[in-house]
Design a protein around this nucleic acid. Structure first.
Lengths: 356, 356
DNA sequence: TTTTAGCACTCAAATTTATTAAGTGCTAAC
DNA sequence: GTTAGCACTTAATAAATTTGAGTGCTAAAA
């Protein structure tokens, strides 16, 4: 679909240098800088001619005539697709991730930890979108005290979510059992995003008799499931330090945009096919996001799609580092977290060794 | 301790008008504005003389010689203590609160809802500090599946908190029972803030035998209890619109300050004696907070102290509205939320009526 | 044909200067 | 005690000036 120009080696080198310098410095890059800093064995005049051609081909832009060049969306795209070198995550970052994400708590808690860690490392807001195509597999209701029930929802993909229901009346054990059975019968297999609706139907159809208790239980479930379908993470403190946010209006617009669920929602729905999706600047249909890049990675486990981890920042973001961070998190996630299969196996291995 | 000047009626009226106008407009208030807007039956020259006296007495300050006056910390203090009229919360706000806070979820979830609502109404960041002098009353451990335990912690004050522990090995029912008994025996009465320490002791002393499972359980509890002892709430979007944040450095400093746990921590510990505490500007020992006011209200229920609800904003905050909002929340809280006694009573009343 | 030195030109950003308007303090009269 | 009137101060705004980074083009060199 997109026609990729054939760039000769020198042009590639120049483009890649401009992108990398601009990512680092946030200043338009001039011909002199390129020659000096990136040891291009040509005079600045030659580089200037090349840059002009690159601009005419749409890879670079010039904020104004007496400024250096900055990459265009097309330039970033070419860089990401063809020029960028994979880089390994630094040991500092690896250690930080390993020591911070501990796998305690329910799925949401772990997602939150991940978003936190990614924000810290990349100095960027991070959003986690949970998979709401996942379906309910099993519901348990546990009586904690006279008027407190604990409801545990387990999904097909193995995530766990629980909520507390405070009852207005006391309730008999056998009532709880009946209720649990009905809930399981009617709700098993329901996609989480349809749970809201399904609960209404269930109440109408089969749970009239329990209406007193059910209101409390159902409302608790609804509330728990409805909240933070998208988990927005701060990371704001650090992104504000970036030079693109030296303008107060940009700060406000960005913060507002990030708080507008609809914008973020629609932006994140794009990447359906690819596990790693990179949407740069004007590639994003939402105009307000045209100055930003969103990089998302599907989080999977045992080939089950659990959700999407997305990073939102200025187009001038460190693509290489972002991608390697996301990938590292995903690898870690696959092997250690939420499911305990592997953790169990490791222990199993140890005990076998011990046995001989 | 503080010497309160005797201000005559005219001075009081002027001071109160300056404070209220400045709270509304964020601009230094001049003598002419006062005469016109607040119908003071004197010429601007007279008002100027009075303002000069008020400044000399320390109630007002002048940003520069050709500007109007703004209230000093002492001026705000006098206003809050002596001049401010209590105002009722508007019906719009009351409805918003009533419709948004629903009482579902555990204590943390409800606190979060409250912080959210307060932020929205006051356009200000809101912090909730949980009472960590509360003690553990009862611990329940529920087996959800082979390798999943649900641990429910109930405190003396009636708050509930739960966490999920993922086990590395399967566990027998009777083991869970034994473990639960030991946990309850050893931990009942432990203050929540000492739980971390106490857990270590318990493991050392009585739970050696269960070490395999306990690690997971204990870590889960620890993690759950350690996180968000202070729940910081955003509300940032809206506070940024206020004119004091038109300077980008102030924005950054404020956001950084709010993210620095220690500062907020120490600032909130002040108000020990009073249920409603107001710390204005330089009354705050933390220098970074000298431009801000913190208003906190103890949240209580059945005379039990559950935590503190605090609002942080510029000195120029709407004191009357903030206070009435906090009070309304607290009243609501006392009667409806967390505990279900009242809710139960209401239903009971209904059924009695129905019975006749 | 490709590269480069050299120079005129452009334009944003920084700096300086001028203008404006809001508000005061003081004096002298009411 | 109050107030009209006026000189004075100063931040904010606008306008003018300077500076400097970087370009594009031309013509000569490789």
């Amino acid at each position: 679909m997109v026609i990729v120009m054939n760039l000769d080696e020198r042009k590639k080198k120049i483009l890649s240098s401009v992108v990398e310098d601009y990512i680092e410095s946030a200043e338009p890059v001039g011909s002199k800088t390129l020659v000096e800093k990136y040891h291009l064995d040509y005079s600045s005049a030659t580089i200037r001619n090349e840059m002009k051609l690159l601009e005419e081909a749409g890879y670079l832009e010039q904020p104004h005539v007496s400024a250096g060049r900055i990459p265009s969306t097309k330039g970033y795209r070419y860089y990401v697709d063809n020029l960028m070198k994979e880089r390994k995550l630094s040991m500092v970052d690896i250690n930080y991730i390993d020591n911070t994400i501990n796998g305690f708590g329910d799925t949401d808690a772990i997602f939150e930890q991940i978003a936190d860690v990614v924000s810290k490392i990349l100095s960027t807001p991070t959003v986690i979108t949970k998979n709401n195509t996942d379906t309910i597999e099993n519901i348990k209701v546990v009586k904690i005290s006279d008027k407190l029930l604990l409801i545990v929802l387990m999904s097909k993909n193995g995530t766990v979510k629980d909520c507390i229901a405070k009852l207005t009346d006391t309730v008999e054990d056998n009532v709880i059992e009946q209720m649990t059975n009905i809930l399981n019968r009617d709700l098993a297999g329901t996609p989480i995003k349809e749970l809201h609706l399904a609960l209404n139907t269930v109440i109408m159809k089969d749970l009239q008799a329990f209406s007193g208790i059910m209101d409390d239980v159902v409302n608790s479930i609804k509330y728990e499931m409805s909240k933070d379908m998208k988990k927005l993470n701060s990371g704001m403190e650090k992104i504000l330090e970036k030079p693109e946010f030296s303008d107060i209006d940009k700060v406000k617009n960005f913060i507002n945009m990030m708080s507008t669920k609809e914008i973020i929602d629609s932006a994140l729905q794009k990447s359906k096919d690819n596990k790693l999706s990179i949407v740069i600047g004007s590639e994003n249909k939402e105009v307000l996001l045209n100055d930003y890049t969103i990089i998302s990675l599907d989080i999977e486990q045992d080939n089950k799609y659990l959700g999407k981890l997305s990073v939102i920042g200025p187009k001038r973001m460190n693509y290489a580092k972002t991608i390697s961070t996301l990938k590292y998190i995903n690898d870690k996630f696959k092997n250690t977290l939420i499911s305990n299969k592997n953790k169990g196996n490791v222990k199993g291995d140890n005990s076998e060794k011990g046995r001989r």
